[in-house]
Amino acid sequence: MDANIIEVTNLSKYFDDFQAVKGISFAVKPGEVFGFLGPNGAGKTTTINMLTGLARPTAGAIRINGSDAVQDIAAVQQMIGIVPDESNLYDELSGYDNLVFCASLYGVRKRERERRAEELLEQFGLADTGRRPFKAYSKGMKRKLTIAAGIIHEPQILFLDEPTTGIDVESARQIRRLVRELNDGGTTIFLTTHYIEEAERLCDRVGFIVGGKVVRIDRVTALMGEDEKEYIIEFTLGEGNSRPEAGLDQAMLQAFPGVKINRVDHRRLRVIPEKREPIAGFIKFFEDAGQPVYEAKIIRPTLEDVFVRITGIEIAKMKREKEGRRKR
């Protein structure tokens, strides 16, 4: 067996003369949660569609679990589960019937599909609503049922296209928990998202995709570690500032040679020492200077900081675009 369960090489997709995906390469290891993180229109869905057989690559190679996804898509489709970016089950069918039908598409036997459907409805908290038609479901319930439909045939690999976009906080949390449980059970997961926190919390590795190009792939811990080389402590001081700020800074530079100081606002300042050292020394210094410390914390970089630094894209802008698109 391959060391990688998904292997993509120089994958490109043109729509007429517009290139949506620009020669991307990446690999996913068995048992991993791999995330594609990028703004609207980056090419995430197009990539998933090519991997799952809904779109044909213009160029490049895809191997999934040892099979060629371009030549032998049916073999690949038998091993994978797909949760599209839209909940696209059958409106007229009940939750239960939807699940049973989806299992039948993969050749799951009748007894087994009925058992799995009951089990999944229970697991996803939909047991009470399982006999109601899909069209009567709330957005969060639809999403959950769509995910259940994606795993009813127990695929080795699950593709999730923006699993929590546009649904309520509670359902989103449940979905993240379910994805983690599924992964603990051994399922390899490929997901796309534009929620940085989601990638940070769920993924072992992420790829940043922007404008059809993968600009960076790494372990989440490694990406965050890079920015963590700088050790930042933020202090929140009292209101009463007996000495002028410049004076305090001056005194600090003398007490801690090589330290860098950034003022956040009139009460908060960030201190960047040359090397890691206990914060007790700083607190004592402030107390001695007549500045009670109300709060002290280590500032850790978020995946967001890393994303912004590498792609140059502001997250706020990314979210605004998304909201705008959904309103259409």
Binding site: G53, L54, A75, N88, L89, Y90, D91, L105, Y106
Partner: peptide
């Protein structure tokens, strides 16, 4: 139109 047809296209049948 409801995009449920995509499910059938994604199923492992010819």
């Amino acid at each position: 139109r409801s995009r449920s047809f995509e499910r059938l296209l994604l199923a492992p049948i010819s």
